[in-house]
Computed example of a mutant assay.
Amino acid sequence: MAMATRNEGSKVNSNINVTPMVDVMLVLLIIFMVITPMLNNKVNVDLPKTDSATVMEDANKEDAVTIAVTRDGTTFLGGDKVSLDDLGPKISAKLENKTNKQVFMRADARANYGKVMDAVDGVRAAGVSQLGLLTEKREQAEPVTTKK
């Protein structure tokens, strides 16, 4: 009489299928690549539109000192809310170890001009000689032709 034995354990596939994991990782990579440039501007302001805007590449750097003035007159240094009295000393502290003493300002198009000038005065009080005012380039509309 022969004894029947089960040999199922030798047929077990112990390989890990990494294809779904790679798919998920690629989707996450694409999402982070799309979202990362949006994180640079921590304070949302509606920049004024101009015809002769020039590109300021240094404003997009991670260590750039950026001031934002919102529509209601609130002043931000980077992503932190600051008062106008504290603006000068805080900018001086940020620029202390830098060779490039340039500051960039993002002011809302509908912000009170006096509040923007107060922020500029705070920047000048910190000893900054180069202040970049950030704007957006206006889209050129196609000329309208009329038939006579």
Rank of each mutant, 00 (worst) to 15 (best):
M1P: 10
M1F: 11
R6L: 10
R6M: 09
N7S: 05
S10M: 05
S10N: 13
V12R: 13
S14H: 13
S14Q: 12
N15E: 05
N17H: 08
V18Q: 12
P20W: 08
M21T: 08
V22N: 05
D23C: 15
L29C: 08
I31F: 14
F32C: 11
T36W: 12
L39Y: 03
L39Q: 08
L39I: 10
L39T: 15
N40F: 13
N41R: 13
K42Y: 04
V43P: 03
V43W: 04
N44G: 11
D46I: 08
L47G: 09
L47I: 07
L47T: 07
P48G: 06
K49M: 14
T50K: 15
T50R: 15
D51G: 15
S52H: 14
M56C: 14
M56P: 02
E57N: 14
D58Y: 11
D58W: 06
K61G: 12
D63H: 05
D63R: 01
T66L: 12
T66K: 06
A68R: 04
V69W: 02
T70C: 05
D72G: 04
G73N: 00
T74Q: 14
T75G: 00
L77I: 06
G78M: 07
G78T: 01
D85K: 14
D85Q: 13
L87E: 02
G88S: 14
K90A: 09
A93E: 14
L95R: 07
E96Q: 14
K98Q: 09
F104S: 06
F104L: 03
F104K: 05
R106F: 05
R106D: 04
D108L: 03
A109T: 09
A111V: 01
A111E: 02
N112D: 15
Y113W: 09
Y113L: 15
Y113N: 06
K115D: 07
D118W: 10
G122A: 00
A126L: 04
S129C: 00
Q130L: 00
Q130C: 07
L133M: 12
L133G: 08
L134Q: 10
K137V: 05
K137A: 10
R138L: 06
E139W: 07
E139Q: 06
Q140D: 13
Q140A: 13
A141L: 12
A141K: 15
P143Y: 06
